Simulated scan of single mutants.
Amino acid sequence: MAYSDSDDRVRTDTTRSTAAQAPAAVKILIAGGFGVGKTTMVGAVSEVVPLNTEEHLTAAGVGVDDIDGVDQKATTTVALDFGRITVNSQLVLYLFGTPGQERFWFMWNDLVHGALGAVVLVDTRRLKSSFASIDFFESRGIPFVVGVNCFDGRRDRTESEVREALDLDPHTPIVMGDLRQRRASRDLLLTLIELLMSGHAQGHAQGHDVAVDQRA
């Protein structure tokens, strides 16, 4: 009796069923200038305890790190932040926050491998600190959205003013909100997924199928 053939068919069918049910895993980078809120956003939206590599600022960084406008900040990310959010049964986002200080930018080249899209956070008080992130993703053809971190609901720039100041492509979405709040951060990520599904990002996202469920 061909028991082995039957067992092989059962294992094959089980493997196919498991593969069909497994959600797609999408790597997303969270970038932006120093002190703009990357670590906070990952922590706010992650469904697991986030991994972070924050260290205290020391006298060694004086004259090296630009802390203009964020003088009260006492820590900085020296490697990465990591979190995860399940959008629906078909899609899981893995979030990688990049270090913001210039002396750690060399790590971006490693973190970007396998990333399907990115979020660039900006603080309207220090818009120039986000130029490097925008240039980085544009030069690599990686779709991104811009999140304007409106701390405590403060909005001192309009969307059109931010778009002009950052010289953004007309198709680059801008989302404004207090990204310390889970809902605002979630909406920003959903905007990125919608961009990846749209025709404007098809050239960069070939071979990936993503599905959005607004209940996330």
Rank of each mutant, 00 (worst) to 15 (best):
F104W: 02
G153T: 10
P173R: 00
A59E: 12
V175W: 02
T172N: 00
M176H: 14
F151P: 13
D71W: 13
T158H: 11
S198F: 01
V146A: 03
S89P: 09
R157V: 09
G117I: 03
S139C: 08
E138Y: 04
D110R: 11
D152K: 08
E194F: 01
F104K: 07
L189S: 08
S139Q: 07
Q72F: 11
L166F: 03
G177H: 01
I142V: 15
A79C: 04
K73W: 06
L179F: 13
G83N: 08
G83E: 00
D66E: 08
Y94R: 11
A165Q: 12
G83W: 06
V78E: 11
N149F: 06
V162T: 00
E159F: 02
S198T: 12
G63E: 06
D135C: 13
G114Q: 05
V112Q: 15
T86Y: 01
N109Y: 10
S139P: 01
E159Y: 02
R155I: 11
R126M: 10
T158Y: 03
L111I: 01
T77D: 07
L91V: 11
V122G: 12
H200A: 15
D152W: 05
L189R: 08
V92M: 10
T76L: 09
L93I: 08
A79G: 09
A74M: 11
A118M: 00
V62Q: 13
D71H: 04
I193F: 08
R180E: 10
T77W: 03
Y94D: 08
G141V: 07
D123I: 02
T158A: 01
T98I: 10
D135L: 08
S198I: 06
F151C: 00
R125I: 03
T75K: 15
R182C: 00
E161V: 06
H171F: 03
D152E: 14
R154T: 09
L195E: 04
T58F: 09
P143V: 00
D169Q: 07
L121P: 09
P99M: 07
G97Y: 02
G147I: 14
N149S: 01
D152P: 05
T86Q: 12
P173L: 00
W108D: 01
D71K: 04
